Simulated assay, not measured.
Amino acid sequence: MKELIILGIRGLPAQHGGFETFAEHLCKYLIERNWEVIVYCQEEGAGPIYESEWQRARRIHIPVKGNRAFSTIVFDLRSTIHSLRHRGVYLTLGYNTALFNVLHRLFRKTNVINMDGIEWKRQKWGAAAKVWFWMNERFGCWLGNQLIADHPKIEDHLATRVSRKKITMIPYGGAQVSTASDEALTNYSLSPEEYAIVVARAEPENSILDIVQGFSTSRRGRKLVILGNYDRSNPYQNKVMKAASNEVIFLGAIYDTEIVSALRFHARVYVHGHQVGGTNPSLVEALGAGNAIIAHDNPFNRWVAKDGAIYASDAAAFSKAFTQIFEDDELYLSLKRNTSSNFQHNFKWGAILEDYENLLAEIYPDN
């Protein structure tokens, strides 16, 4: 029985983001193929390390005090040290604390690192955090036995650090959503195909202000639904809220995946403003729901959404895109068809998880 050790996430079941969702899918897939899967899980508090089982995966829980960034760094260090007792192949999701992976090298462990996006370029980070991420990106490139890029542009970026032979491109995957209850829409006074939706953190690099300004330039007779936490004490978020017309609805953060899936599925258009990153999980989920898409115009989004999206780069362009998608039914249906075809051919979990298993088996230390 081959053994996989997963590091770099908060834990299972998935509750915190794209990497956890991916890890959940990968665990189930590999366990069905007779792998033993060990997942390190971060717990808030104090006490001894303990184990539990979740759907036949071994979970190793490491308590750490607090829930801030430093707590996660402590967790990553403790889990890295504890993991050295295992004999299988390691999969580290993200490079934020890749410095610690020097221990895997010293103990001759085989470690595959998913290098995620170009974290140090994100606008939300201060100078010290950017230096930390920049430094750990390089440690990840040097210390990983093999690197995974989830997008061709990420592969190109990593190839400026290491040989392409060390990099495997495997995108993020998603689940197909072919039907969804409209009960959630009733709770928010929404009607199918009569609104656009944004699911993103309220940060400048996600183009939220441009999207809201573009939508609010005229009376549309439709709604723009925005998911995420907004606080007027935050200067950027306050600017977004002040720019919104009365047709913009801020629903706050919704963590129920069925409700989010239903809101996305019944939307006229999914709006994706992310400017930085690889294969973004939220955009792939929109593909899985068969959405027409308006996306920020950059190489990351163009490779993922392809001809299923209208692309925009500023408020004026977003405004024009909203007008097109709400008024042109032929365009709307064409984008949906293109999105569905793109998803079926490129982003279904089955093929992506198979690629991961093939890579992990190929690099397995007993080979």
Rank of each mutant, 00 (worst) to 15 (best):
K242S: 14
G277K: 00
F100P: 10
F107H: 11
Y172K: 08
A46P: 07
G252S: 05
A309R: 04
E194Q: 15
Y311I: 03
N187F: 15
L93N: 02
N145I: 04
L158M: 09
V260C: 02
A196F: 14
R232W: 12
V162S: 04
N358V: 12
P13W: 05
T279N: 05
G173C: 00
A202S: 09
K153A: 11
K109E: 04
V89R: 12
I363D: 07
G17V: 06
A129Y: 14
F318H: 05
V198M: 12
I325P: 00
R268W: 01
A316N: 13
I352H: 03
P192C: 03
I226D: 04
V269D: 09
I60Y: 01
V304C: 02
N234K: 15
K242D: 15
N342D: 05
G47D: 15
Y356F: 11
T179H: 11
A202Y: 02
G66T: 03
A23I: 01
D210I: 12
V64H: 02
T80M: 08
H86W: 11
H16D: 09
Y332I: 01
E20Q: 02
H157M: 12
R264A: 05
D328C: 10
K153V: 11
P63K: 06
P204Q: 12
N342P: 03
T217Y: 13
A180C: 10
D182R: 03
A200M: 09
L359P: 10
R33N: 13
Y195M: 06
A295C: 04
V64A: 00
F343T: 05
A46W: 14
V271H: 01
G18H: 00
G252C: 05
R302G: 06
L263D: 07
E327V: 02
R138S: 07
M169L: 13
I5S: 08
I208S: 05
K121M: 14
I148F: 07
S79W: 08
H16G: 09
M115G: 03
T186F: 13
A200I: 13
D182T: 13
K121P: 01
E32F: 11
N298R: 00
S218D: 09
E3D: 13
P365Q: 07
I352Q: 09
W54E: 03
T168F: 09
R58W: 06
K153P: 06
N342A: 07
Q123E: 15
A312K: 00
L93R: 02
E43M: 15
N101Y: 09
K336Y: 04
S282R: 00
Q344I: 11
N136F: 06
